[in-house]
Design a protein around this nucleic acid. Structure first.
Lengths: 92, 92
DNA sequence: TAAAAATACTCCATAGGTATTTTAT
DNA sequence: ATAAAATACCTATGGAGTATTTTTA
């Protein structure tokens, strides 16, 4: 493992940004709330600061979070295209 | 884990495509040759076919391999940019 | 017969789960 | 008092390593 943030982690960030709620985002990702909490903490640690601001009843994105989410969405789209094209190529 | 091919795996494919030699590519990645062999096998399994053609003294890319390598290079560049920008954003 | 990839096996790090606690409204 | 995230603790899966075998030019 050398890559700082993996695609799966980017997916978690994007889903959490959509829900702004750990429990519901975790359910969407088919993992538990603590698992998602730990994933996000780990990413924030590797980046050196928070992507989300937690208040007991209000979760929001930081500016850095917004920046990463936007790029992550684009990367995930590109990754899916690359994989789909490769799948076609291994057959055709 | 939901994403079919992760960035680290793409990196392995790119490095192997550059060396066309499992042993030297593995050394570049700071892993063992068997570890790299297994990584590549796993990716080929998820894609449904080979990315490399193995002959005892000649390793080559399949057409599908060429396609994926080209896209993977681009994705890895974009990912690094995204991460660098996010790193800046969490500070600034 | 030699160079290189594949296999066999063992081990351990970590990602995930459940249960519980903390926090601020 | 409650909703929601964080923490504690445990387990198991899979990724990596070393040693060995297979393959075919």
């Amino acid at each position: 493992m050398v890559m700082d943030v993996e695609l799966d982690q980017m997916r978690s960030i994007v889903v959490l940004a959509e829900h702004l709620h750990f429990g519901r985002a975790a359910a969407t990702l088919y993992i538990s709330q603590p698992a998602l909490t730990k994933q996000i903490h780990k990413i924030e640690e590797t980046l050196g600061g928070p992507l989300f601001l937690r208040k007991p009843r209000q979760l929001t994105l930081t500016r850095a979070g917004e920046v990463l989410v936007e790029r992550a969405r684009s990367l995930l789209r590109d990754a899916h295209v690359a994989i789909d094209i490769s799948r076609s190529a291994v057959r055709g």
